[in-house]
Write a protein that binds this DNA or RNA. Structure first.
Length: 596
RNA sequence: GCCCCAGUGGAGCAGUCAGGAGUGCUCAUCUCCCUGUCAAGGAGAAGGCCGCCAGUUCAAAUCUGGUCUGGGGCGCCA
């Protein structure tokens, strides 16, 4: 039905006869001559309908309107001098139309496909098929394909095999909430949709498949965020006979390959940072290193302080830390109060601000500082005249990290501290490996130690004997990749030794019976010669979002869910017939919807 | 579960702080004019439950309370 794509015509095609199919992007009717921009996936080209070329085609073009789906047969012509459009890739040529076929007329769309501004997202999602016609979304979908295609080419070349794992599997109570699927055949029993293929890929290693990857949907029934959807796509990967360095090497080369193929960028080597260093410097385990404003510890400065909040925090074994916002010492009282409220809403008891001015420190608590403390604060914080120092003190160092880490990111955004860089600039992409995570974190609510990664994560040899004595000091063989402040991937070297696995489960307070019931199939598999193995699982949606310059993964997912996990296009989730429920041995306890 | 922001012809906005007739802008739609435009131009027209419910008031898009929807965040996300 067509010989060329619209966006691919160039001056070299001048004189050739072409047939194009696409949608009417815009129409400019001059009465005697009519222009349309014809659009397909590849882009736009101008089509001219003139009575001097074809009376019939010109007459037929009269009825054309935006988004009509048409076929045009015509000849490519170099544009007359002075009518070249440098803003269009095909702007040096136009197609003189000899014949026009209208495949489908179109109603006036609910929003303009050729529009430039923002459109309310619910409307875009309800008419996603129209939204995807827009250049921006089309580019995002094509970039997503390019990235996924590059990933597959890389792993194929490295000797990995792509194998699918089940979507209907067994619920494991730890971790995120599962999406459940009722069994018709087994009354009262449920499958769960996978949160990740974690256990299956480890079984592949026991099977000797050696190098596995899969681009796979995963499901977690938790509340949504800009970077979280209930169903999302992972690049799941696992390798045998490897240690940390091997997985990091393959993964880093994979990202470099993808960035080169999809964006044409030669990435620098990734920075490596321990979890401890990331927390100390940035307050978070996914540092955005595109800007400074790092955290500074003020414990030494205020070691002997009389200022009550600092004294109390330090005496409780907590921390006093700060970030310095350059050039904002003159911030107004209203904005400062808002910052204090923001810190409180993040969990801090308060926020102490201190402006460095020619007259000295401008701060509500200045009167509690000694001269040494004033001088020490400015010096240690590295502040200069005109800077604003923001201090958080808390008996729990975790609160200090969390509040300052969040404020650092938010203030950088608000005050434009992140340099604008072209995508082609390697400096635009700050990949950081985070390593040496603690194995456990203490769960206050439940009064027990929980895994930071998952129960099959390897233990750094030198710290394994803390398992029984001081779990907080056990270091895991887990690693993350972060990019510009986003967590892109998590992985680990796994435990392949049954004895070590039992020690870890015991430290988690999981009994043998419980372990057997939950994931006995994996533990049993390990009885038959489990190789040393490990892997990683980058999030595809986040990778594409960052590569596309989006701050929201919905922009790179064809049919995403709203924040309340609904789909305005299909209306999912929706009620089902009682008959369907009955077949599945289910009865709803939800309150009946109000009758209208 | 909690905090914050938004909701005004089909789309995007202004108007809301400081109450006074659905008041305005850009685009789209419809009719007419127009043979070189390209976000075409000109003339005209149509199009509204100011998200919804209540309250205050002589009077509510505007003030108050509630509610719904969307978005950002906290909790949650091994």
């Amino acid at each position: 039905m067509r010989t060329h794509r619209c966006g691919e015509l160039t001056a070299a095609d001048a004189g050739s006869s072409v047939t194009l199919c696409g949608w009417v992007h815009t129409r400019r009717d001059h009465g005697g001559v009519t222009f349309i921009d014809l659009r397909d996936r590849s882009g736009l080209v101008q089509v001219v309908f003139s009575p001097e070329i074809s009376l019939a085609a010109h007459a037929a073009a009269e009825e054309l309107r935006g988004e009509f789906c048409v076929q045009v047969q015509g000849s490519v012509a170099a544009r007359r001098s002075g009518t070249v459009n440098p803003r269009l890739a095909t702007g040096e040529v136009e197609v003189a139309a000899h014949e026009l076929t209208v495949f489908s007329r179109a109603e006036t769309p609910p929003f303009q496909v050729d529009g430039h501004g923002e459109i309310e997202e619910t409307l875009r999602l309800r008419y996603r098929y129209l939204d995807l016609r827009r250049e921006h979304m089309r580019d995002n979908m094509l970039l997503r394909h390019k990235i996924i295609s590059a990933i597959r080419r890389f792993f194929d070349a490295e000797g990995f095999v792509e194998i699918e794992t089940p979507m209907l599997t067994r619920s494991t109570p730890e971790g995120a909430r599962d999406y459940l699927v009722p069994s018709r055949v087994h009354p009262g029993d449920f499958y769960a949709l996978p949160q990740s293929p974690q256990l299956f890929k480890q079984l592949f290693m026991v099977s000797g498949l050696d190098r596995y990857y899969q681009i796979v949907k995963c499901f977690r029934d938790e509340d949504l965020r800009a970077d979280r959807q209930p169903e999302f796509t992972q690049l799941d990967m696992e390798m045998s006979f490897v240690d940390i360095a091997d997985v990091l090497d393959v993964t880093e080369r994979m990202f470099k390959f993808v960035w080169r193929e999809a964006l044409g960028v030669a990435l620098d080597d990734f920075v490596r940072m321990t979890y401890g260093e990331s927390m100390e410097r940035f307050g978070v385990d996914k540092p955005d290193t595109r800007f400074g404003m790092e955290l500074t510890d003020l414990g030494d400065v205020f070691a002997g302080t009389e200022a009550r909040v600092f004294r109390a925090a330090l005496d409780d074994g907590g921390a006093v830390k700060c970030v310095t916002l350059a050039g904002r010492a003159d911030m107004g009282r209203k904005d400062l109060d808002a910052l204090v409220d923001e810190a409180k809403s993040l969990g801090a008891g308060g926020l102490v601000w201190a402006g460095v001015t020619a007259e000295g420190i401008r701060s509500p608590v200045d009167k509690f500082f000694s001269d040494d403390e004033r001088a020490g604060l400015v010096k240690v914080a590295g502040a200069e005249e005109g800077d604003l120092i923001l201090i958080v003190a808390d008996g729990d160092p975790g609160v200090v990290y969390k509040v300052l880490g969040a404020l650092r990111n938010r203030l950088a955004d608000r005050h434009g501290l992140i340099p604008e860089r072209a995508k082609s600039d390697p400096e635009a992409w700050k990949f950081v490996w985070i390593t040496d995570f603690p194995w456990f974190e203490y769960n206050e609510a439940e009064g027990r130690w929980d895994p930071i990664h998952h129960p099959f994560t390897g233990v750094v040899e030198a710290t394994k004997d803390y398992l029984e004595t001081d779990p907080g000091r056990v270091v895991s063989k887990a690693y993350d990749i972060t990019l510009n402040g986003w967590e892109l991937a998590s992985g680990s070297i796994r435990i392949h030794d049954r004895v070590m696995q039992e020690r870890v489960l015991s430290a988690l307070g999981i009994s043998d019976e419980e372990a057997q019931a939950r994931f006995g199939f994996l533990l049993n598999a390990f009885r038959y010669g489990a190789p040393p193995h490990g892997g990683i699982a980058p999030g595809i949606d986040r990778i594409v979002a960052l590569a596309a310059g989006e701050s929201n993964i919905r922009e790179v997912i064809a049919f995403p869910k709203t924040q309340s996990a609904t789909d305005p296009l299909t209306g999912a989730p929706a009620p089902v017939d009682d008959a369907q429920l009955k077949l599945l041995h289910l009865r709803s306890t939800a309150p009946a919807p109000p009758e209208n």
